[in-house]
């Protein structure tokens, strides 16, 4: 299957999020999963059974927020709900969304 423009992320409980591939690639973790030899690369479907749907939704929101703002200066901060801050932090660590969403990866 040729690389589709979209990929599917599946959370705990089977919630599916169809995400623009380019946006999701900000996460090195997902990038790694989509490398050719893994099954995720063939199906375009990444399952995260340990991440709950609300958190994954926020992560997906971040993917798009990052994607929209990737070339901009002075980007307004995304709103992070305080109550899910710690969970989101864990997810950020899991998805490797660490400091400086590398400039060079985009080029």
């Amino acid at each position: 299957m040729a690389d589709s423009k979209y990929i599917t992320l599946v959370s705990d409980g089977g919630f599916e999020f169809v995400v623009l591939r380019e946006a999701a690639l900000v996460s090195p973790t997902i990038k790694g999963m989509l490398r050719s030899q893994f099954s995720e690369a063939q199906t375009g479907r990444c399952e995260f059974p340990e991440i709950n749907a609300t958190v994954l939704e926020k992560v997906v929101e971040y993917f798009y927020y990052w994607y929209r703002n990737r070339d901009k200066e002075d980007v307004p901060d995304m709103d992070i709900p305080v109550e899910m801050c710690l969970e989101l932090l864990m997810a950020a660590d899991y998805f490797n969304l660490d400091a400086k969403p590398a400039l060079r990866n985009m080029a």
Binding site: V59, W66, K72, E73, M78, V82, L86, A92, L97, A99
Partner: peptide, 22 residues
């Protein structure tokens, strides 16, 4: 850095603003 802040940074900033809740 150009572009959006990393999710990690955003979370940590939110957390430090609300550290009294943690």
């Amino acid at each position: 850095s150009l572009g959006a802040k990393s999710l990690m940074t955003l979370c940590i900033e939110t957390l430090s603003k609300n550290i009294d809740l943690a």
